[in-house]
Protein backbone atom coordinates (compact mmCIF):
# COMPACT_ATOMS: atom_id res chain seq x y z
CA UNK A 1 0.00 0.00 0.00
CA UNK A 2 2.75 2.40 0.99
CA UNK A 3 4.59 1.55 -2.20
CA UNK A 4 1.44 2.21 -4.20
CA UNK A 5 0.98 5.68 -2.68
CA UNK A 6 4.59 6.56 -3.35
CA UNK A 7 4.17 5.33 -6.91
CA UNK A 8 0.96 7.40 -7.38
CA UNK A 9 2.54 10.57 -6.00
CA UNK A 10 5.52 9.99 -8.22
CA UNK A 11 3.28 9.52 -11.24
CA UNK A 12 1.36 12.72 -10.46
CA UNK A 13 4.57 14.76 -10.46
CA UNK A 14 5.89 13.16 -13.65
CA UNK A 15 2.75 13.41 -15.77
CA UNK A 16 2.62 16.88 -17.45
CA UNK A 17 -0.03 19.35 -16.44
CA UNK A 18 -2.22 18.77 -19.46
CA UNK A 19 -1.99 15.06 -19.85
CA UNK A 20 -2.70 13.77 -23.30
CA UNK A 21 -5.57 11.41 -23.27
CA UNK A 22 -5.28 7.94 -24.70
CA UNK A 23 -7.17 9.12 -27.81
CA UNK A 24 -4.71 11.94 -28.43
CA UNK A 25 -1.71 9.67 -27.96
CA UNK A 26 -3.07 6.97 -30.24
CA UNK A 27 -3.93 9.58 -32.86
CA UNK A 28 -0.29 10.72 -32.80
CA UNK A 29 0.84 7.11 -33.10
CA UNK A 30 -1.44 6.62 -36.10
CA UNK A 31 -0.02 9.73 -37.82
CA UNK A 32 3.52 8.55 -37.02
CA UNK A 33 2.85 5.18 -38.67
CA UNK A 34 1.39 6.92 -41.71
CA UNK A 35 4.32 9.37 -41.83
CA UNK A 36 6.82 6.53 -41.86
CA UNK A 37 4.90 4.95 -44.73
CA UNK A 38 4.78 8.23 -46.63
CA UNK A 39 8.45 9.05 -46.12
CA UNK A 40 11.25 6.69 -45.01
CA UNK A 41 13.20 9.74 -43.74
CA UNK A 42 10.57 10.53 -41.09
CA UNK A 43 11.90 10.33 -37.55
CA UNK A 44 9.83 12.37 -35.13
CA UNK A 45 7.15 15.10 -35.12
CA UNK A 46 8.52 18.56 -34.37
CA UNK A 47 6.44 21.27 -32.67
CA UNK A 48 8.59 24.02 -34.28
CA UNK A 49 7.65 22.71 -37.76
CA UNK A 50 4.04 22.57 -36.57
CA UNK A 51 4.14 26.20 -35.43
CA UNK A 52 5.57 27.35 -38.72
CA UNK A 53 2.89 25.38 -40.59
CA UNK A 54 0.10 26.77 -38.39
CA UNK A 55 1.12 30.42 -38.65
CA UNK A 56 2.42 30.76 -42.23
CA UNK A 57 0.51 31.86 -45.27
CA UNK A 58 0.17 29.05 -47.77
CA UNK A 59 -0.63 29.07 -51.45
CA UNK A 60 -2.71 26.71 -53.54
CA UNK A 61 -5.83 26.90 -51.42
CA UNK A 62 -8.84 29.19 -51.57
CA UNK A 63 -7.82 32.87 -51.76
CA UNK A 64 -9.96 33.82 -48.74
CA UNK A 65 -8.28 31.29 -46.44
CA UNK A 66 -4.49 31.46 -46.92
CA UNK A 67 -3.59 30.27 -43.39
CA UNK A 68 -4.82 28.26 -40.44
CA UNK A 69 -4.83 31.51 -38.50
CA UNK A 70 -7.33 33.08 -40.94
CA UNK A 71 -10.13 31.37 -39.04
CA UNK A 72 -8.46 30.09 -35.89
CA UNK A 73 -7.14 33.43 -34.62
CA UNK A 74 -3.56 34.66 -34.56
CA UNK A 75 -2.34 32.26 -31.88
CA UNK A 76 -3.46 28.80 -30.72
CA UNK A 77 -4.60 30.27 -27.42
CA UNK A 78 -6.93 32.82 -29.07
CA UNK A 79 -10.47 32.12 -30.20
CA UNK A 80 -11.35 32.15 -33.87
CA UNK A 81 -14.41 32.67 -36.03
CA UNK A 82 -15.78 30.47 -38.81
CA UNK A 83 -16.55 32.00 -42.17
CA UNK A 84 -20.21 31.68 -41.18
CA UNK A 85 -19.63 33.71 -38.01
CA UNK A 86 -19.62 30.96 -35.45
CA UNK A 87 -16.93 31.23 -32.75
CA UNK A 88 -14.14 28.63 -32.75
CA UNK A 89 -12.69 27.67 -29.40
CA UNK A 90 -8.90 28.00 -29.09
CA UNK A 91 -6.91 25.13 -30.59
CA UNK A 92 -4.47 25.02 -27.65
CA UNK A 93 -5.11 22.04 -25.40
CA UNK A 94 -4.55 24.27 -22.34
CA UNK A 95 -7.55 26.39 -23.37
CA UNK A 96 -9.76 23.66 -24.83
CA UNK A 97 -8.92 20.35 -23.12
CA UNK A 98 -11.36 18.39 -25.31
CA UNK A 99 -9.32 19.14 -28.44
CA UNK A 100 -8.17 16.12 -30.52
CA UNK A 101 -10.03 13.63 -28.34
CA UNK A 102 -12.31 12.63 -31.22
CA UNK A 103 -10.19 11.21 -34.08
CA UNK A 104 -13.11 11.39 -36.57
CA UNK A 105 -13.52 15.08 -35.84
CA UNK A 106 -9.80 15.70 -36.31
CA UNK A 107 -9.84 13.89 -39.64
CA UNK A 108 -13.00 15.70 -40.72
CA UNK A 109 -11.41 19.09 -40.14
CA UNK A 110 -7.94 18.28 -41.51
CA UNK A 111 -9.80 16.98 -44.57
CA UNK A 112 -11.74 20.19 -45.05
CA UNK A 113 -9.20 22.76 -43.96
CA UNK A 114 -6.10 21.39 -45.72
CA UNK A 115 -8.11 21.61 -48.93
CA UNK A 116 -9.22 25.17 -48.16
CA UNK A 117 -5.76 26.41 -47.13
CA UNK A 118 -3.35 24.28 -49.21
CA UNK A 119 -5.55 23.06 -52.03
CA UNK A 120 -4.39 19.49 -51.26
CA UNK A 121 -4.64 16.97 -48.42
CA UNK A 122 -2.09 17.38 -45.65
CA UNK A 123 0.69 14.81 -45.23
CA UNK A 124 0.71 12.73 -42.06
CA UNK A 125 3.87 14.54 -40.99
CA UNK A 126 2.17 17.95 -41.33
CA UNK A 127 -0.78 16.74 -39.29
CA UNK A 128 1.47 15.26 -36.60
CA UNK A 129 3.66 18.35 -36.41
CA UNK A 130 0.65 20.64 -35.93
CA UNK A 131 -0.82 18.23 -33.41
CA UNK A 132 2.29 18.10 -31.18
CA UNK A 133 2.61 21.88 -31.47
CA UNK A 134 -1.00 22.41 -30.34
CA UNK A 135 -0.79 19.73 -27.66
CA UNK A 136 2.12 21.59 -26.11
CA UNK A 137 0.27 24.90 -26.03
Amino acid sequence: MKAFIVWMVGLATVVPQHAWSGEQASLLEKYARQARQESPDFTVFQPQRGELFFTSRHSGGKPDTPACTTCHGATPTSSGMTRANKPIEPMAISKTPSRFADPDKVEKWFGRNCDSVLGRPCTAQEKGDVLVYLLKQ
Binding site: K62, D64, E107, K108, R112, N113, D115, S116
Partner: peptide, 12 residues
Protein backbone atom coordinates in the same frame (compact mmCIF):
# COMPACT_ATOMS: atom_id res chain seq x y z
CA UNK B 1 -20.23 19.61 -50.02
CA UNK B 2 -16.66 19.97 -51.31
CA UNK B 3 -17.71 23.39 -52.56
CA UNK B 4 -20.25 24.51 -49.98
CA UNK B 5 -20.84 28.23 -50.51
CA UNK B 6 -17.13 28.47 -51.34
CA UNK B 7 -15.97 26.27 -48.47
CA UNK B 8 -14.91 22.68 -48.32
CA UNK B 9 -17.49 21.12 -46.02
CA UNK B 10 -17.06 17.49 -47.01
CA UNK B 11 -18.20 14.72 -44.68
CA UNK B 12 -17.15 11.12 -44.40
Amino acid sequence: LDNHFGENASLS
